[in-house]
């Protein structure tokens, strides 16, 4: 609960930091003045009173700095400062900036293009039901001379297969061997 409240208050302080700086300046000034007045009442000269008041306060600048660190979000402010610095440096070296931008643009573009292709071809499944059960059908003509050559089948052969072939899972080695032997001889070329 406390943490939330502190965080919110720090965020709010970021937005109004100029006004709060003025507030702090005035508060510190009031402190020194009040201390000086009291010292004068105790019989010091105006100069003495003021010096004494400042000494008892401790470092005014350090106090304000510590106060600001406590007030805002110093890490976020540092990040914003670094970003502004980076932007200034880039604006100062347009050649370097251009090289960096072009390099980044090309590499991001190439990566995206390659990934799109790989994604469509290899990663995403095809837009059919049970697409994981799809396979490639080819023919292997056995006999002298043409051993182990793969042949694609044409539309007529495909229709023949569709109407005659028994259903198989088609994924495992044993299945496809069995399927192939069942089909052997049935396929009419």
């Amino acid at each position: 609960m406390d943490l939330v409240r502190v965080f919110l208050s720090r965020c709010a302080a970021l937005i109004r930091s100029d006004r709060l700086d003025e507030d702090l300046d005035e508060e510190v000034r009031a402190h020194i003045d009040l201390a000086t007045e009291e010292n004068v009442r105790r019989g010091m000269t105006a100069q003495e009173a003021r010096t004494r008041a400042l000494r008892e306060f401790g470092g005014v600048t350090q106090t304000k700095e510590r106060y600001r660190v406590q007030r805002g979000l110093p890490r976020l402010e540092a990040l914003a400062k670094d970003t502004r610095y980076a932007m200034r440096q880039l604006a100062r070296n347009p050649g370097f900036t251009l090289t960096v931008i072009v390099t980044l643009a090309l590499s991001i573009g190439a990566n995206t293009a390659i990934f799109s292709i790989v994604n469509a071809l290899m990663l995403k499944s095809l837009p059919y039901p049970h697409s994981e059960r799809m396979g490639v059908i080819f023919m292997r003509i056995q006999g002298p001379g043409t051993a182990d050559q793969r042949h694609q089948i044409d539309g007529r052969q495909w229709e023949l297969l569709r109407d005659n072939a028994p259903a198989r899972c088609g994924r495992c080695e044993a299945c496809s061997k069995e399927w192939a032997s069942t089909m052997r001889g049935r396929c009419l070329l």
């Binding site: 510190v28 306060f57 510590r66 007030r71």
Partner: peptide, 11 residues
């Protein structure tokens, strides 16, 4: 240091 109380007051 009297100034030390300001961060404490803010906290």
């Amino acid at each position: 240091n009297q100034g030390t109380i300001y961060p404490a007051l803010l906290r």
